[in-house]
Simulated scan of single mutants.
Amino acid sequence: MGIIRFNRIPMELTDKVAVVTGGTKGIGFAIAESLLGEGSRVMICGRNKRDLKDASERLAVHGLLESELCDVRSEDQVRMLLDESSRRMGGLDILINNAGVGYFGKTVDEMSGEEFRQTLETNLFGVFYACRYAIPLMKERGGGYIINISSLAGQNAHPKMAAYNASKFALNGFTEALMQEVRHDNIKVSYICPGSVNTAFGGDVPNQEKMWQLQPADIARVVIDLLQMPERALPSKVEIRPSKPPRRF
């Protein structure tokens, strides 16, 4: 018998409309930059007006960029963000849920209720809001792709990271359920679980001594690779970690 070949081409990223939450710094910025480099039209959001302005000026040279202030903890703000991106750019094809917070170094009895609440509302509820309002827009376009930025902390618990662990464990379960719900609507859903990334997230300080860590561009590369997978293929979960961390033995 001859080989049966199916014409399942990757997503063409030119002129696709993408929303990247938390796109002003670190991983989100690198993802937005990579999408613009592939010819996509990109909307970024952030909570800090100055950071949003600075990121927009740096990214605008790479392609068609829009930006909007948005606190993903607010369902109304997320809904308006998605509606505005669709109105300005003509629809929605790609959603990257990257916005996140982390409070590290505190035990459960040291952490405030507000810190725990903010972690869950940002890392989990914000993703839910964005997906809830993005899915109808993607269905109107005949499909799309949702990529949630999780963490290896979503499967490996650590002391003094309980809130962050809880948010990412929940995000992983949410994403896997969502993937099964919308796959037959031609909407792909994946989540990426990075290890240590050389950013300022969680109060960390990027420096040359930590160049063994992953770089934001490494995560952006994974995003582009996922988007360009053949239509028939869905890598629903990607783990990525530094190849040579400091020895512990």
Rank of each mutant, 00 (worst) to 15 (best):
Met111Pro: 01
Asp83Cys: 07
Asp83Lys: 14
Gly126Ile: 07
Glu114Val: 13
Asn98Pro: 04
Glu121Ala: 11
Ser85Tyr: 05
Arg117Gly: 11
Lys160Tyr: 13
Tyr103Cys: 05
Gly173Val: 01
Leu120Thr: 06
Phe174Asn: 00
Thr175Leu: 02
Ile94His: 04
Met179Cys: 11
Leu152Ser: 08
Lys106Arg: 11
His184Cys: 12
Leu69Phe: 10
Ala177Tyr: 11
Ala153Asp: 06
Asn165Trp: 04
Lys106Ser: 11
Ile96Leu: 07
Asn98Arg: 01
Ala162Met: 09
Cys70Ala: 14
Met111Phe: 01
Cys193Val: 12
Arg117His: 12
Arg87His: 13
Gly173Thr: 00
Gly143Tyr: 01
Ser86Pro: 06
Asn148Thr: 03
Glu121Phe: 03
Asn97Lys: 05
Leu69Ile: 15
Glu115Pro: 12
Ala177Asn: 11
Ser151Phe: 00
Asp71Lys: 07
Asp185Thr: 10
Ser150Tyr: 00
Gly143Cys: 02
Asn97Glu: 05
Arg132Lys: 15
Leu152Tyr: 03
Gln180Glu: 14
Cys193Gly: 10
Met138Asp: 02
Thr119Gly: 05
Leu137Gln: 13
Gln180Thr: 13
Gly102His: 08
Glu84Val: 12
Gly102Thr: 06
Tyr129His: 14
Gly173Ile: 00
Lys139Phe: 08
Asn186Val: 07
Glu140Cys: 04
Val72Trp: 02
Ala153Tyr: 05
Leu152Thr: 13
Leu81Met: 12
Tyr103Ile: 14
Lys106Pro: 00
Glu75Asn: 08
Asp83Arg: 14
Val127Ala: 13
Ser86His: 10
Asp76Ser: 15
Met89Leu: 15
Ala163Gln: 01
Val101Asn: 04
Glu181Cys: 09
Gly154Asn: 03
Ile94Leu: 13
Met89Ser: 08
Gly173Lys: 00
Leu92Gly: 06
Tyr133Ile: 14
Lys106Ala: 09
Asn148Ala: 00
Leu81Arg: 04
Asn97His: 03
Leu82Gln: 05
Phe104Val: 02
Gly105Gln: 07
Ile187Trp: 08
Gln155Arg: 12
Ala134Ser: 15
Leu171Ile: 03
Gly143Glu: 04
Ala163Val: 04
Arg132Trp: 05
Asp71Leu: 12
Glu115Thr: 07
Gly143Gln: 02
Gly102Pro: 06
Ile96Gln: 05
Phe116Glu: 06
Cys193Ile: 10
Tyr129Phe: 15
Lys160Arg: 15
Glu84Asn: 14
Gly90Met: 09
Leu171Arg: 00
Asp109His: 14
Asn98Asp: 07
Val101Lys: 04
Ile96Asn: 02
Arg117Ser: 15
Thr119Glu: 04
His184Gln: 13
Asp93Lys: 07
Arg87Pro: 04
Leu124His: 03
Asp109Lys: 11
Asn98Lys: 08
Glu110Ser: 09
Glu84Cys: 11
Tyr191Ala: 07
Ser67Ala: 14
Thr175Ala: 04
Ile96Val: 12
Lys160Pro: 03
Glu66Ile: 09
Leu82Ala: 06
Ile147Val: 04
Phe169Thr: 00
Asn165Arg: 00
Asp185Gln: 12
Ser112Asn: 10
Val127Asp: 09
